[in-house]
C-alpha cells in the first residue's frame, strides 16, 4: 500500500490522497469496533430523543396519532382519508400546561424527585463509603462480609420492591409488627406522602448501596498505601488520615459515581412504581413515573410524556454541566 509513496518525488496530490488513505487504514477498525453500538444507540435512543423533542411541541395522543384513517370497503379494498383531528403543532403549550400545573402535577413530582434523589444518593454514598472503609481493613471474615453485602445488587428491582412492600405492608408487614412490639402504633405507610416516599427511599437505598460500596472499595484500593504511612509519620490521627488522604484520594471515583448515581436515581422508575404506585393519590409520584402514567394510562398522551422527557433531560443536563463546572473550579477534571 506504500508503493505510490515509495516512488521518488511524488507529486503533491497523490501524497495527500495517500495520507487520507493511510488515515482510513489506521482508523477503519476503530470505527468498525464502535459501529454496532453507534447504530443501536442512534436508532433506538438518539432518533427517539429527537422525535420526542419534536412531539413535545405537538398535541399527539393515542387518539389522534394516525395521519390517515382507513376503512375497509365492501370490495375488500381500503379507503383512506385524512384524519380530520390529526395531531398538530401546538408550540410550547405542553410546557406551559405542565409548568403552570394546568395538567399533571409537575411541581409536586419535581419536589418528590428532588427529595427522592438527594436522599437516595446521600445515603447510597455515605453508607457505601462507610462500609467500604470498614471492608478495606484487614480483618477476619472480610471477604464473606463483602460477598454478603453485595447481594442486594443481584436482586432484580421489582423483586426488591416486592420484598420491601411486603415488609412495609400495613397489615402484616414485619416493620409494623416490630413497631407494635416496642410499643408504638403501626403506621399506614402508603397513606401519606412522606411515609410512602420513606418506604420507597429505604428500598432504593438498600438496592443501590452495593454498587457504591464496590466502586468506592475499588477507589480505596487504588490509593497508594505509602500515603497513609506518610500521614502516620506526620502524626495524623485516623480521622485526619480519612479527611486528608482517603477522601481526596477517592475524589475521582466519588465525582463519577455521584454524577451517575444522581442520573440513575432521578430516572429510577421501578421502585416508586412498584413500592408506592404513587399512593396516596399520586402524592408520591416522581417525574419519571408521572411521565409513564401520561404515556400509558387512560388515553395515551404521547406529547405530554415527551414533554416530561425533554424537561427531565434538560434538568439533568443542567445539573451535569453545573456539576462538572464545580468540579473543574476545584481543579478536578473528569
Amino acid at each position: 500500500m506504500s508503493s505510490e509513496a515509495a516512488t521518488d518525488a511524488p507529486a503533491e496530490p497523490p501524497k495527500a490522497a495517500g495520507r487520507l488513505r493511510r488515515s482510513f487504514d489506521r482508523n477503519w477498525y476503530a470505527w468498525a469496533m464502535v459501529l454496532p453500538t453507534v447504530i443501536v444507540l442512534g436508532v433506538l435512543v438518539l432518533f427517539p430523543l429527537v422525535q420526542g423533542v419534536y412531539q413535545s411541541f405537538t398535541n399527539l395522543t393515542e387518539a389522534n396519532q394516525d395521519e390517515v384513517i382507513c376503512t375497509k370497503t365492501l370490495g375488500g379494498g381500503e379507503e383512506c382519508k385524512e384524519n380530520p383531528k390529526k395531531a398538530e403543532f401546538v408550540g410550547v403549550d405542553n410546557y406551559v400546561d405542565l409548568l403552570t400545573g394546568e395538567r399533571g402535577s409537575f411541581w409536586l413530582q419535581f419536589t418528590n424527585t428532588v427529595v427522592w434523589t438527594v436522599a437516595c444518593v446521600f445515603f447510597h454514598y455515605t453508607i457505601g463509603l462507610g462500609l467500604a472503609v470498614m471492608l478495606n481493613r484487614r480483618m477476619r471474615f472480610r471477604s464473606l462480609y463483602r460477598v454478603l453485602l453485595i447481594v442486594p445488587w443481584a436482586v432484580p428491582g421489582f423483586v426488591a420492591a416486592f420484598g420491601w412492600k411486603f415488609l412495609f405492608n400495613p397489615r402484616f408487614g414485619l416493620i409494623n409488627e416490630g413497631l407494635v412490639n416496642i410499643g408504638l402504633d403501626p403506621v399506614e405507610w402508603f397513606n401519606h406522602r412522606w411515609t410512602g416516599l420513606f418506604a420507597a427511599i429505604c428500598t432504593n437505598v438498600w438496592l443501590g448501596v452495593p454498587f457504591m460500596m464496590v466502586a468506592i472499595l475499588g477507589g480505596l484500593q487504588s490509593i497508594p498505601s505509602d500515603l497513609y504511612e506518610a500521614a502516620e509519620m506526620d502524626g495524623a490521627t485516623p480521622w485526619q488520615r480519612f479527611r486528608n488522604v482517603t477522601l481526596p484520594g477517592l475524589r475521582p471515583v466519588s465525582s463519577t459515581v455521584i454524577l451517575l448515581g444522581t442520573i440513575w436515581t432521578f430516572n429510577m422508575f421501578p421502585i416508586i412504581f412498584f413500592v408506592t404506585g404513587g399512593e396516596p393519590a399520586g402524592q408520591t409520584e416522581i417525574l419519571v413515573t408521572g411521565a409513564y402514567r401520561a404515556a400509558f394510562e387512560g388515553v395515551r398522551n404521547y406529547s405530554l410524556a415527551a414533554t416530561y422527557g425533554v424537561l427531565i433531560l434538560s434538568l439533568l443536563m443542567v445539573f451535569a454541566s453545573a456539576y462538572r463546572r464545580t468540579l473543574k473550579a476545584q481543579g478536578e477534571v473528569f
Binding site: N27, Y29, A30, W31, M33, V34, V38, L41, L44, V45, L46, F47, P48, L49, Q51, G52, L260, I263, W264, N267, F269, L287, V288, T289, A291, Y292, A295, F296, R300, Y302, A305, A306, Y308, G309, I312, L313, L316, M317, A320
Partner: peptide
C-alpha cells in the same frame, strides 16, 4: 484509538443515561 467522533460518542453515552427509559418505551 483516536478517531473522529470519539469525544462526541462519550457524550452520547452520558446523555443516553439521562433520557428516561420510561419515555423511550413509546418510540422504541
Amino acid at each position: 484509538f483516536n478517531f473522529a467522533g470519539k469525544r462526541g460518542l462519550m457524550w452520547v453515552f452520558l446523555i443516553t443515561q439521562m433520557f428516561p427509559v420510561a419515555i423511550l418505551i413509546v418510540p422504541i
